[in-house]
């Protein structure tokens, strides 16, 4: 009986580990390929998409010879990838900064104040969160057009600042904070504003970390918004919309671009991993 149980646990372990390896493989392979020389990569990519040939692609897991040629091309010689990369950075940073002003304050207002209509307001934010992008893009476009902001960077940034998911996430955390925390500080004479800045925000550090990391991941992978709101201004596109065109060009250094693009997201994940785990679990309770 217990032998059988032990066997099952080992089986689960092996299957899960295999799964984990497959999940990680795309990242590992991107990094490995980014150290191939440009001619080697071009040669490999040239064998793509040829349907008539019976042979297989000449694939290796790792480069024949380690080379920094791709990185040199991306970072020094060629400006194109770096320019789109900079666009991505601008969007991600602007969105994060804007959200920092709007989202935690709104979450605080929705969790630690009692007023009529609070639950209705929160319910509407949850409903908004559930609407797909194809629906919410329409009101966004109407406003952006009215303001004359279409085909400017603001079109991508502004609507993201009020992302309902992050208001929801931080509110879930704040509502679980004990009221005594605020009572103590108001006895000391601190108003809501000072209590918010000096008591609530520091206590919320884990959930703020999770929200920031998840928000970064979202703005680092923007596709729908730039394609719709910036349809006439290619130069404003973030790098995330460019990879499939780059692949078609086959210049041999796409993988260095991809590796550079993965790297910040990877670092953020490693740094905030525990916060993100706890943050995702917050979405569960009502």
């Amino acid at each position: 009986m217990s032998n059988q149980k032990g066997f099952r646990i080992w089986l689960a372990r092996i299957v899960l580990t295999l799964f984990a390896v497959i999940i990680l493989l795309p990242m590992v392979q991107t990094f490995l390929y980014s150290f191939s020389s440009i001619p080697e990569m071009q040669g490999l990519m040239d064998t793509r998409g040829k349907r008539t040939e019976e042979t297989w692609m000449d694939l290796h897991l790792s480069p024949h010879k380690i080379s920094l040629g791709q990185y040199e091309q991306v970072l020094v010689k060629d400006e194109e990838i770096l320019r789109f990369f900079t666009n991505s950075v601008v969007y991600a940073v602007a969105i994060l900064l804007g959200q920092a002003f709007v989202v935690p304050a709104m979450a605080f207002g929705l969790s630690k104040f009692k007023f009529r209509g609070r639950e209705t307001l929160f319910f509407m934010i949850v409903m908004l969160m559930l609407l797909p992008f194809q629906v919410t893009m329409v009101p966004n476009v109407l406003t952006l057009r009215f303001m004359g902001l279409l085909d400017t960077a603001w079109a991508v940034i502004l609507p993201m600042l009020f992302a309902p998911f992050f208001i929801f996430l931080i509110r879930q955390f704040m509502i679980s904070l004990p009221d005594e925390l605020l009572e103590a500080s108001s006895i000391d004479g601190a108003g809501p504003f000072r209590s918010f800045l000096w008591i609530v925000l520091p206590v919320c550090r884990p959930v703020l970390g999770a929200a920031a990391a998840l928000s970064f991941a979202e703005s680092w992978n923007l596709v729908e918004q730039p394609l719709t709101y910036l349809s006439k201004s290619e130069t404003l596109m973030p790098l995330s919309t460019r990879f499939n065109q780059m692949m078609a060009g086959n210049q041999g250094y796409e993988f260095a671009g991809a590796a550079l693009y993965i790297l910040p997201a990877l670092l953020i994940y490693l740094f905030f991993q525990e916060d993100i785990l706890a943050g995702i679990q917050l979405t569960e309770m009502k």
Binding site: L16, T17, F19, A20, V21, I23, L24, L25, P26, M27, Q29, T30, Y33, R48, M57, L59, A213, L214, A217, W220, N221, V223, L239, S240, T241, F243, N244, M247, E254, F255, G257, A258, A259, Y261, I262, A265, L266, I268, Y269, Q273, I276, L277, I280
Partner: peptide, 23 residues
């Protein structure tokens, strides 16, 4: 290890992972 690996893609830009997918 599995937990960390399975959550990692959620933070990854799938736009860059596409390259491997195409291969």
């Amino acid at each position: 290890f599995f937990r960390s690996s399975v959550l990692l893609p959620y933070l990854m830009p799938s736009s860059a992972i596409l390259l491997i997918w195409l291969i």
